[in-house]
Design a protein around this nucleic acid. Structure first.
Length: 699
DNA sequence: CGGCAATGTGTTTTT
DNA sequence: CACATTGCCG
């Protein structure tokens, strides 16, 4: 195997075979290269069975990338290596041992909102006001407990506040409900395997024998459950290799504990430790700035990340007038850089909160720049998609009461709240699922429909089933009858979902409903199936972890946003925010832009924004200040005045749509106009008086 | 039951 | 601001 492209430290890590190994890999130090080469080396050079190798990554995206890279080194053999996220891996264990966990074979995974709905219902049942006791807060308390592997009993042992009492009470009923629904939640995918291993050493041993070589990426972001799972499976052979960087720990809000990486040497004595400190990614300027920033953190292990790359251009800092000016600054620089030959896919705009993407998107559309919003799982959160998934989940597991309630009246069948309440009560009394107690009325027609779907599921392909459900449920007809643009968009989304199913089927051969449901529960973005090249990436700073781009725009660098301080400033963790800022700037290879706004529309009103204290932590010698052209700012502000509420549309008029940007009217009929938008939206039919449309006046 | 209007409420990051 | 929920009426 050719290891000539690796430096000495990297080679050492790749060639380490048996025993615990800790790789402390600074940003851009080539850890993915090390991990992929190490897997390849173990298999090709050492002769280890690929089935005995387990590689865990943090995101599905990283897992896919790792598979591809190992495939490119060793070919088909790579397919036998188990590469997945912790949650997918946990799912696998639960599925292989469902009978030992009190589940039926066809258990389903509830998503976050399903869980919250269940908790709301529990609160009502025990006569507590969901307004006083926030269901989401209770969900996250339960989640937190599960992540430290506490069940309700254990939780109750060291808690005493009235709030805890309520959480415990809800937690107990919540667990009963899950069991009754033959369902698990996200946290169970980690917790259940651990409980199983504790109880049943034979099963544990089976997995220890199976996964003799374990590699964990992003180890600084593992939580207690993930840590424990790794430790248990690795306990027998101790061939545990973890890679991480304490400075890039950014998920403590989700229970991640970067002490896990600091304590690795204590947990695994005689662990080999390798430091990767040469950065291959960024220019000297960018890396120096990053080092200056992260040095401000008090709780950290100092290290010396260096690069032999060139000095590079200075970091550009622009303090915009407002959020629109900020977006405009970003798009105009992107246009400029693109004209200089930098491809769009080598540029990214990173922001702290998802809400910031909207204004940016509007400007990208206005300026005709192709872009994609990465990691936006908004698609699966759309009503019509959730309804359709509810059908699929119910077909697969008819004990899933939440999803039954969700779709029983979609489309409207005259089964309202009264009926479902009655069914729910009956089911509660008889201690069975709602599905089971249905024995008459309009509900029975629905039940028969689901039975028909089950039949269809057993005899046709996944795509055929999806198509069948969309049609036969009546969802399609209801939307067709509506004849509004919203309904049209929904129809398109249902079609899009069908394409996702089809792509999945084509990609993996014949696919079961089970696998498909697992996939859409565990994988947030569907974008992997589509061709996403030649587009600028828009994403949160968190989502950017592990990625790199020639050009990075870090936007919204204002106190309160980045560093983010919620309603309770004392609760926010400035050091974690700083690590996030560090992760952000180290994504950039060649050009880094820091941007913020003096004024921003936030939570409904305009507020004056102070610049982020993090910017001041970078030495001025690395920064080129961009504020010169005030006249540019004033033209931007005038833009608002171009738009009016006029609905007297004529062919040839230019309108602006909130989502699709500027377009030309090519046809007018009654209340509908046909508009040609720029790529990627093209021609759309719209309702004249829709609130998202404004006419552009010629002044 | 379903549709609409008024009112209220929460706003970080994600597998 | 965007949404979810509530209350009222046909």
């Amino acid at each position: 195997m050719d290891l000539s492209k690796l430096n000495d430290k990297q080679k050492e890590a790749v060639k380490h075979i048996d025993g615990p190994l800790l790789i402390l890999a600074g940003a851009g130090s080539g850890k993915t290269r090390v991990l992929t080469n190490r897997v390849a080396y173990l298999i090709n050079e050492v002769g280890i069975n690929p089935r005995n190798v387990l590689a865990i990554t943090f995101t599905n995206k990283a897992a896919t990338e790792m598979k591809e890279r190992i495939f490119s080194i060793i070919g088909d053999t790579a397919l036998q290596v188990q590469i997945s996220t912790f949650h997918s891996f946990g799912y696998r264990i639960v599925r292989e041992n469902y009978h030992l966990l009190g589940l039926d074979k066809n258990f389903t995974i509830l998503d976050e909102s399903d869980s919250v709905i269940i908790i709301k219902k529990i609160l009502k049942d025990i006569n507590l006001d969901p307004k006083q006791y926030n269901p989401k807060a209770i969900k996250s308390a339960i989640s937190g407990a599960k992540n430290v592997l506490m069940n309700a009993e254990e939780y109750s042992r060291f808690s005493n506040t009235p709030w805890d009492e309520i959480v415990i009470k809800v937690y107990r009923i919540y667990e009963e409900t899950l069991k009754k629904s033959n369902a698990v939640d996200f946290d169970d995918l980690l917790m259940l395997p651990i409980h199983l291993f504790k109880r049943n050493s034979e099963v544990l041993e089976k997995y220890q024998e199976r996964y003799k070589y374990i590699l964990i990426d992003e180890y600084q972001d593992t939580n207690e459950a993930q840590y424990k799972l790794t430790k248990m499976i690795g306990a027998k052979y101790r061939n545990v290799c973890v890679v991480g960087d304490g400075d890039q720990s950014i998920y403590s809000f989700r229970g991640a504990n970067y002490n896990n990486i600091l304590n690795f040497e204590k947990d695994y004595n005689n662990a080999k430790v390798i430091l990767l400190e040469e950065n291959y990614r960024s220019t000297k300027t960018i890396l120096n700035a990053a080092n200056e920033v992260i040095k401000k953190n008090k709780i950290r292990k100092d290290k010396n990340l260096w690069t032999s790359n060139e000095e590079g251009s200075k970091i550009k800092y622009y303090r915009a007038y407002d959020e629109k000016d900020e977006a405009h600054y970003v798009t105009s620089n992107i246009k400029q850089l693109h004209s200089e030959g930098i491809p769009y896919e080598e540029m990214a705009v990173l922001y702290r909160t998802n809400a910031q993407s909207r204004v940016l998107e509007e400007h990208f559309m206005l300026e005709n720049i192709p872009y994609k919003v990465v990691g936006a799982y908004a698609f699966y959160n759309r009503k019509e998609i959730k309804d359709l998934i509810a059908y699929l989940k119910l077909i697969y597991n008819d004990k899933d009461d939440v999803n039954l309630i969700r779709c029983i009246n979609v489309p409207k069948r005259g089964i309202g709240a009264k009926t479902t309440d009655k069914l729910q009560m009956k089911a509660d009394v008889e201690k069975v699922s709602i599905y089971e107690v249905i024995d008459g009325g309009k509900e029975l027609i629905f039940k028969n429909l689901i039975e028909d779907f089950k039949q269809k599921a057993s005899e046709s392909s996944l795509t055929e089933l999806v198509e069948y459900v969309i049609n036969k449920s009546g969802m399609k007809q209801e939307l067709l009858n509506e004849k509004s643009i919203e309904a049209n968009i929904r129809l398109e989304n249902l079609d899009e979902f069908k394409s996702i199913a089809m792509a999945f089927e084509e990609h993996n051969g014949v696919v079961s409903l089970e696998e498909f449901l697992m996939q859409i529960s565990l994988v947030s973005n569907s974008d992997d199936t589509k061709d996403e090249r030649e587009k600028v990436s828009l994403m949160t700073m968190h989502a950017a972890k592990g990625l790199e781009f020639d050009v990075v725009f870090a936007v919204g660098l204002e106190e309160g946003i980045m560093p983010h301080t919620g309603f309770d400033a004392s609760k926010s963790d400035i050091e974690e925010e700083r690590r996030l800022f560090y992760v952000t700037i180290t994504r950039a290879k060649k050009h880094l832009f820091l941007v913020n706004a003096r004024m921003r529309l936030l939570f409904g009103d305009r507020s004056i924004r102070e610049e982020s204290s993090f910017i001041k932590e970078i030495e001025e010698e690395h920064i080129e200040f961009q504020n010169k052209k005030r006249e540019e700012i004033s033209t931007i502000n005038k833009e608002d005045k171009f738009y009016t509420e006029d609905v007297d549309f004529n062919q040839g008029d230019i309108i602006v749509h909130d989502d699709f940007g500027e377009g030309v009217i090519i046809n007018v009929e009654k209340s509908i106009i046909t508009v040609s938008f720029a790529y990627p939206h093209l021609v759309k039919k719209l309702l004249k008086k829709h609130k998202s449309i404004k006419k552009k006046q010629v002044i």
